[in-house]
Design a protein around this nucleic acid. Sequence first.
DNA 1: TAGACCTTGTGAAGAAAAGCACAAAGTCGA
DNA 2: TCGACTTTGTGCTTTTCTTCACAAGGTCTA
Lengths: 237, 237
Amino acid sequence: MPRGLHLLASSRRDRCRLLPQSNKRVVPGATVGRLPAYLQALTELSEAGSRRVASDELASVTGVRSAQLRKDLSYLGTYGVRGVGYDVSQLIDEITAELGLTQDWPVIIVGMGNMGRALAAYGGFGQRGFRIVALADDDPSIVGDVVQGLPVCRLADSLAANERLAIGVITTPADQAQQIADRLVEHGVQSILNFAAIALRVPDNVDVRRVDLSTELQILAFHAQRRDMAKGREGVG
Amino acid sequence: MPRGLHLLASSRRDRCRLLPQSNKRVVPGATVGRLPAYLQALTELSEAGSRRVASDELASVTGVRSAQLRKDLSYLGTYGVRGVGYDVSQLIDEITAELGLTQDWPVIIVGMGNMGRALAAYGGFGQRGFRIVALADDDPSIVGDVVQGLPVCRLADSLAANERLAIGVITTPADQAQQIADRLVEHGVQSILNFAAIALRVPDNVDVRRVDLSTELQILAFHAQRRDMAKGREGVG
DNA sequence: TAGACCTTGTGAAGAAAAGCACAAAGTCGA
DNA sequence: TCGACTTTGTGCTTTTCTTCACAAGGTCTA
């Protein structure tokens, strides 16, 4: 009996509804969330001169178990060599392609307060296909500022000037975020990164990811309190 | 047979190892991650004058299924009234307590670049027990600046001046982040919010959460590419 | 008081993710 | 060529998370 047949068959049936013409397995969401970390570690290894890497090593650098790393990579295909490990640059290419980073993703940042400026200045954008093409803010005292070489325009003008915008980053106050999101969606933006402290309502075909400082702090506080409680009982019991 | 007995017994055994003296069930991590959103929605409802809310309504505002909301809340205890819903302010109190937001959490921000300044200016900190007590940066051209009413000090000085620091926020470049984390940990900080693009190594008793712009963008790109592929095939098939 | 009507709380089922453990498939030295 | 050794890929198990669906328990009107 050919090995792997059962998994292949079941994955065809269960997971490939969205990729009927692809022979790749669908990549689970949890795996997608880890691919950027692998990619970054691999890039560092590559810059340090490594040509090969074993799952143990890459896993330890990225803070996951080696079995999980191998399973994650197995969703992309069979790129490792048993007894040897993975070819660093091949793996970089595969993950880059899987994540869609070979394409061009024009980004607009809406809201040029502190956070918006910080993001505009953040180097990470420029790499990997992401390209900031517009900075928008409707505050008249900000419109016209030049941030990182780009002029700040009113949102309407930014939209008019950029027909294709792939990703919208919202860094406005929460009370404006929904309205901004609506306008972005209407303009065809289907990916939104939301820094405002509000859950955006968008159509099903639009993907929103939220980054919320306050949520992160609260989760930290929860665990900190849990630690303190455990410690307190230790002393008593 | 009394209802709920099995679950109670199994949850005592499976989940309460960390809370031997508590009669509460352990709150699953996924639930903890949603509590801040519930809390925020409830706060808004409360400010709008609502005294009661049903799971359907709260779920729809926060973007989860009502069954999930009820199950999440059930980990905190039995605070709803059948046929009626939940008391808004009671629920606020319960979630606030569960997340540890009644306590005081002194926060230090390390790295006063754009991001650090944006976070220092971010209002969300001040609420809910989080209190920025120190801003640190070792760049001599920045030390001495006053940001949001707080002076920027060298990290060593900030640590010396603040014996108790509950949460450290790292917004330095990636190549300094590990070293900063080590110093924070050595000083007793057990909760770290890491904005640097690197996986920090810390002892088991320290909790790190990472916020990475570049990761978020890459996940968005993955899904966007997936959408585009599906669309492309639609036209063909 | 009774019966119609809501909405919760939760057992059980289902789905997704994580982790284990080992056969398979390669390298390498002699 | 052969056998020792290394590391992958993955079947299987366990754990965690989500969803369903409905009895239980409450309100409210007449």
